Structures are given as structure tokens and as C-alpha cells.
Simulated assay, not measured.
Amino acid sequence: MIAAVNGYALGGGCELALACDIRFASPNAQLGQPEVTLGICPGWGGTQRLLRIIGPSRAKDLIFSGRKITAEEAFSMGLINKVIPSENLLSETRAYAKTIAKNSNFAIGISKMLVNRGTDANLDTGLKLEIYSWAVCFSTKDREERMRKFVEKK
């Protein structure tokens, strides 16, 4: 899933973006977790996803202060993958999605699972999952066809 943020993504909107795999934003985007200013904590994954994406210290800064940040600041801390001019945001996001869609759905799904599981696993466990999954990918017809086309330079 790819988020294209063009405006405010505060609280639940930010948490929705955090649930995506990739996040693009226009320069006029503002992101944040302002829940503490209302006397509540983030409740839709903000504490857990934010810390995994930008680290605990930066996550605490955004959550404890309740401040809004610009797309550029979000990019500098790794919250946003790319800042794209507003007029190009949707077209570039769609073009990126089409690039991904050309690849193997199975291999992308396995890779996503490995990255997500690797976040919570130690390196040894993550590497074991990866080599097992790599072998599973080798058993698919999709891999066979894609490698054949590669070798034939198609």
C-alpha cells in the first residue's frame, strides 16, 4: 500500500499513512500525532508503527509534543519516502505503483512478510526465514517464467 499525503495527516490520518508500506507527500503536507493535546494517546497504531519507522526517540518527540511536522522534516526522519510537488503527487504515486505491479506479486508478498517479521525477530531468525522463503520462491512457476525471460533477454 502506498500513501499519497497532500495536506493534513494528523492523528488517525497519520496512523493510516503509517500503516502503508511506502509514503509520498507533497510539500504542503503536515503530519503528526496530536492526540496528547486532547488528553489521549494515539490509538490506531501510532505508537507502535511510528517507533518502528523513525525510532523511539523521534517517535516520542512527535507523540509527546503533539507537534505537526512538514513533509521535508518527515522525509529527513524517514517517515516519508519522497516529497513530490503537489501537481505531480498522484501521477508519480500511480507510476510508482505500476512499477511495483510489474513485479512478481508472490515475491513482493513474501518480501513484505519478511521485512515485517524481521522487525520483531533477531537477525538469525530473520535470516532463516529469508532463506526458507527464497527457496519457496524458487518453486514457483512465476519465478521460472520470469527467469527464463531474463535469460532470453525478453
Rank of each mutant, 00 (worst) to 15 (best):
N28S: 12
K141L: 10
F150E: 07
A95Y: 11
G43W: 08
R58A: 11
C41E: 05
D142A: 11
V136C: 11
T125A: 11
G11F: 02
S139L: 14
D142C: 11
T140G: 03
Y132W: 12
V151G: 02
A4D: 01
D120V: 15
G43L: 04
I54T: 13
Q30M: 10
S139R: 15
I110L: 12
C41H: 13
R146G: 01
F64Q: 13
L18W: 04
T119Y: 14
K149R: 15
V5S: 00
I69H: 01
Y132F: 14
V36D: 00
E92G: 08
D124K: 15
K149Q: 07
L114V: 11
L51N: 05
I108N: 13
N81F: 02
R52F: 05
T99C: 10
I69V: 12
T37P: 02
L16C: 03
L79R: 11
A74T: 05
G12V: 07
E145S: 09
I40H: 08
S133R: 07
G45T: 02
L89I: 09
T37S: 12
A135G: 09
M1A: 13
R146H: 03
M147H: 14
G126D: 08
E130N: 09
V83R: 02
K98N: 05
I80G: 01
D61I: 03
A4G: 02
K128F: 07
L90N: 00
N88Q: 15
N105R: 15
I54V: 15
E15L: 05
W44M: 04
A101N: 14
L129A: 05
S91N: 06
A107I: 09
K128Y: 06
K68H: 10
A107S: 10
A9I: 07
N81S: 12
E152H: 13
P42I: 08
E145G: 02
T70W: 01
C14L: 12
S111R: 10
L123V: 15
C14T: 11
W44R: 08
K154S: 04
C20T: 11
E15N: 13
G78I: 08
Q33F: 14
L31K: 02
K82S: 03
N28A: 06
S133H: 07
M1K: 12
I108D: 10
K141D: 03
V115D: 07
F24I: 08
A59C: 10
N6I: 05
T125C: 03
Q33E: 04
L129T: 00
A17C: 09
V36H: 09
G11Y: 01
A135L: 12
I63M: 01
I110M: 13
A97T: 06
G126F: 10
L16I: 13
G39T: 12
A121F: 13
P42M: 05
R49K: 15
L18T: 01
R143P: 00
Y132N: 10
M113Q: 11
A9F: 01
A4S: 07
I2L: 12
I22D: 00
A17Q: 03
T70I: 03
L90C: 02
